[in-house]
């Protein structure tokens, strides 16, 4: 089996390098990359941690689509050479390794950070919200983000507008805007109405199509947009 792997490092030209790997039953793309690194090319750089589809560290673009390498069986891909490249829309460090810092910086920029409600004379309020409550059910599908960056890579609008926060940050904002323990709804709501935030999403649902946790950042963004529009028309939103 032929692996065509994107290679680049400071001072070198980018290229697709071919490696031959003997495919075995149950072998994943990550297994193949590890075999290359341990065998023919120890200089090949890529990131992984748990190897069992939990952490999202091995997110990369395999055959043109964002996937986690540890959960992508070679047998699940069409016959022929397999192309592997780093995630789009992130600064490249080397080979398949990208700098994930934009995930955090975009969250900070959109104030996607929990701000606890503080009542006079009380400590910060961290009361648990019951799993059966309406409030919790509204965000249930959005809280499982593992920050792998696949949605950001698949989003064409992130590539087009550097100020667009992208699906991961806006999905996080959605969960906070629906959290009654959070005190920054109004402040965040103002930021969401700026030209480069909610209005920039074109609803292509690329983020939803590639999310390995089966989340739907598109639904989160559209829900935020509906609330923002209601707010614009003067209907108070919590």
């Amino acid at each position: 089996m032929v692996l065509k792997v994107f290679r680049w490092g400071p001072g070198t030209r980018e290229r697709l390098q071919k490696y031959w790997v003997r495919a075995r039953q149950g072998m994943t793309v990550l297994d193949a990359l590890v075999e290359v690194q341990r065998g023919s090319d120890p200089t090949l750089a890529f990131r992984y941690a748990c190897r069992v589809g939990m952490c999202g560290s091995c997110a990369m673009v395999i055959n043109g689509r964002e996937r986690w390498a540890c959960r992508t069986l070679l047998s699940s891909l069409p016959r022929g050479a397999i192309t592997v490249r780093p995630l789009y829309n992130f600064p490249l460090i080397r080979d398949l390794v990208v700098d994930m810092a934009p995930i955090k910086s975009k969250m900070v920029a959109t104030k996607a950070v929990f701000v606890p409600v503080r009542r006079a004379g009380e400590e910060a309020s961290f009361a648990a919200i019951g799993s059966e409550t309406r409030e919790r059910r509204a965000i249930d599908a959005a809280v499982e983000c593992i920050g792998c960056g696949m949605c950001v890579s698949a989003c064409t609008m992130v590539g087009h507008d550097a100020r667009f926060p992208g699906p991961a940050a806006l999905n996080r904002v959605f969960t906070l805007q629906r959290d009654s323990r959070d005190a920054a709804h109004a402040e965040r709501g103002e930021a969401l109405l700026s030209e480069d935030v909610l209005a920039r999403c074109h609803g292509q649902a690329n983020c939803t199509a590639v999310c390995p946790m089966q989340l739907s950042p598109t639904d989160s963004i559209l829900a935020l947009r509906r609330r923002a529009v209601m707010r614009l028309f003067g209907f108070p939103q919590r």
């Binding site: 065509k4 994107f6 290679r7 680049w8 980018e14 290229r15 697709l16 673009v61 055959n63 043109g64 689509r65 192309t83 490249r85 789009y88 698949a154 064409t156 074109h202 609803g203 292509q204 649902a205 690329n206 939803t208 199509a209 598109t218």
Partner: peptide
């Protein structure tokens, strides 16, 4: 024109395009 290779176009993107 670069070593970036191709990427797939998903259904939602076709709709938009």
């Amino acid at each position: 024109g670069s070593a970036e290779a191709w990427r797939d176009t998903k259904a939602g993107m076709w709709a938009w395009l």
